[in-house]
Amino acid sequence: MQRNEHQESNQEEEPVPGMQQLLDNPFMLLFLGVLFPTVFYILWGIMEIISIPAVK
């Protein structure tokens, strides 16, 4: 858990890769982490349940 205290970043100028930008952005991750299960599990699931025809 200890990290080097002194090492300074010498890569300041390099552009940050897109994947790392995503991984460094907690709120984007939160958005995706709520979006995926809400769409694929909850909304899709509920749509199937409410489209079951009622007994006549």
């Binding site: 858990m1 991750l29 982490g33 709520v34």
Partner: peptide
């Protein structure tokens, strides 16, 4: 400096799942 440590990142994962 830099990104949050891996253990904190794992805890962030837990938090996100917890919010959902």
């Amino acid at each position: 400096d830099g990104s949050i440590p891996l253990v904190t990142f794992g805890a962030l994962t837990a938090t996100i799942i917890a919010i959902f």
